[in-house]
């Protein structure tokens, strides 16, 4: 895997470290978000549907890593590293966070792969957030939270809200953040800066 990362896909040391750092930055943001979430939880938890509106933000690390690095594996690694650090910082879902990270990263990766790692525009990124939301609903969240025991209309409502949340918070917001940061010129050694504005 080490060799293939470098030779086949042209990953530099900088790409690897940057992906790790994106994972860490967003793990800290996830942690802060979890605190906010814990605070709003009692107010929105009356309906499982409204709760899903918050979920998308947990997919953002993969999107940001993919947008900056623009190479195969970036979304997957970014989200996985964010999950590892999240677990270390403390999360109520514990070791399941690792599994969530693996699944969410793989789902986002699949969408970028479908566009042959060539397109990182708002459409693709939104699609990746949406798809991640869909996949991670069934595994692992349905398993850990027992969603499948809810009635069908509630499940459909949750899925719709979740996918919108994934598209906006997990996809578009990630792209927007990379755009803001790219304007400062700090990404000059990354593939993203070779894009036309």
């Amino acid at each position: 895997m080490e060799k293939s990362l470098k030779k086949q896909y042209g990953w530099t040391t900088l790409d690897v470290v940057m992906t790790a750092v994106v994972g860490v930055v967003f793990a800290v943001l996830y942690w802060a978000y979890n605190q906010l979430f814990a605070f709003v939880f009692p107010f929105v938890s009356a309906s499982p549907v409204t709760l899903q509106a918050f979920v998308g933000f947990w997919f953002i690390a993969g999107t940001v890593a993919a947008c900056i690095i623009q190479k195969p594996g970036a979304a997957f690694l970014g989200e996985l590293i964010a999950a590892i650090i999240s677990m270390l910082l403390g999360s109520i879902w514990g070791v399941w966070v690792l599994i969530s990270g693996l699944v969410q990263g793989a789902a986002a990766e699949a969408v970028f792969a479908a566009f042959r790692y060539k397109k990182y525009n708002y459409f693709v990124v939104t699609l990746s957030g949406l798809f991640t939301a869909l996949v991670s609903f069934f595994f692992p969240e349905s398993v850990t939270e027992g969603y499948l025991a809810y009635s069908i209309p509630i499940i459909i409502g949750m899925l719709v809200v979740r996918m919108i949340s994934g598209a906006i918070l997990g996809g578009a917001l990630g792209k927007a953040i990379t755009g803001w940061v790219a304007k400062t010129g700090v990404f000059k050694n990354f593939k993203i800066s070779k894009e036309k504005e």
């Binding site: 080490e2 990362l5 470290v17 750092v21 690694l77 650090i85």
Partner: peptide, 12 residues
């Protein structure tokens, strides 16, 4: 991969 691992550690 060790590079990923040590990168993560540096990040941590």
């Amino acid at each position: 991969p060790a590079r990923v691992g040590f990168g993560t550690l540096a990040g941590y």
